Deep mutational scan, measured.
Amino acid sequence: KLCLVCSDEASGCHYGVLTCGSCKVFFKRAVEGQHNYLCAGRNDCIIDKIRRKNCPACRYRKCLQAGMNLEARKTK
C-alpha cells in the first residue's frame, strides 16, 4: 500500500487517509503550527518520496486533496 500524498510505503490510516509516517507528521505540524506555506512555482510541484520536502505548500495542498483531516483521528 502506498501513501496517497507522496507514494512512499504507507504505514497506516492517519487523519482519515492512507499515508506514510512522514506525511502524517508533516500534516499534524502544518495544521497545529498554522503555517502559511507559499509555493515558489505554480502550485503544481511534484510530491513524491524524493521531492516531498521541496515544497511544503504543494505537499500540504496534496494532503488536503487526499482528504486528511485532524479531526478524523478523534472519531475513530
Rank of each mutant, 00 (worst) to 15 (best):
Lys1Tyr: 06
Lys1Pro: 03
Leu2Glu: 15
Cys3Asn: 02
Leu4Trp: 08
Val5Glu: 00
Val5Asn: 02
Cys6Thr: 00
Ala10Glu: 04
Ala10Cys: 05
Ser11Trp: 04
Ser11Asp: 14
Ser11His: 13
Gly12Tyr: 04
Cys13Pro: 08
His14Trp: 09
Tyr15Ala: 07
Tyr15Glu: 08
Gly16Val: 01
Gly16His: 04
Val17Ile: 15
Val17Gln: 04
Val17Asp: 03
Val17Tyr: 03
Leu18Lys: 07
Thr19Tyr: 02
Gly21Ala: 12
Gly21Asp: 12
Val25Glu: 15
Val25Ser: 11
Val25Asn: 07
Phe27Thr: 03
Lys28Ser: 08
Arg29Ser: 08
Ala30Thr: 08
Ala30Trp: 05
Val31Tyr: 10
Val31Ile: 14
Glu32Ser: 09
Glu32Trp: 04
Glu32Tyr: 06
Gly33Ala: 08
Gly33Tyr: 14
Gln34Ile: 05
His35Gln: 09
Asn36Gly: 08
Asn36Glu: 12
Tyr37Cys: 04
Tyr37Ala: 08
Tyr37Pro: 06
Leu38Asp: 15
Cys39Leu: 00
Ala40Leu: 08
Ala40Asp: 05
Gly41Ala: 11
Gly41Glu: 09
Gly41Tyr: 06
Gly41Ile: 06
Arg42Lys: 15
Arg42Asp: 15
Arg42Tyr: 08
Asn43Ala: 10
Asn43Phe: 11
Asp44Tyr: 03
Cys45Phe: 02
Ile46Asn: 12
Ile47Asp: 07
Ile47Met: 05
Ile47Lys: 04
Asp48Val: 02
Lys49Thr: 12
Lys49Phe: 11
Ile50Pro: 15
Ile50Arg: 13
Ile50His: 05
Ile50Thr: 12
Arg52Leu: 09
Arg52Val: 08
Lys53Ser: 12
Lys53Pro: 10
Asn54Lys: 15
Asn54Met: 08
Asn54Asp: 11
Cys55Ser: 02
Pro56Asn: 13
Pro56Ser: 10
Cys58Gln: 01
Cys58Ala: 00
Cys58Phe: 00
Arg59Thr: 02
Arg61Asn: 13
Lys62Ile: 07
Lys62Val: 06
Lys62Thr: 09
Cys63Thr: 00
Leu64Arg: 07
Leu64Met: 11
Gln65Pro: 02
Ala66Ile: 04
Ala66Cys: 10
Gly67Phe: 03
Gly67Cys: 03
Gly67Asp: 03
Met68Asn: 02
Met68Arg: 01
Asn69Leu: 06
Glu71Asp: 13
Ala72Cys: 15
Ala72Val: 09
Ala72Trp: 11
Ala72Met: 13
Arg73Met: 13
Arg73Glu: 11
Arg73Val: 11
Arg73Ser: 12
Thr75Tyr: 09
Lys76Tyr: 04
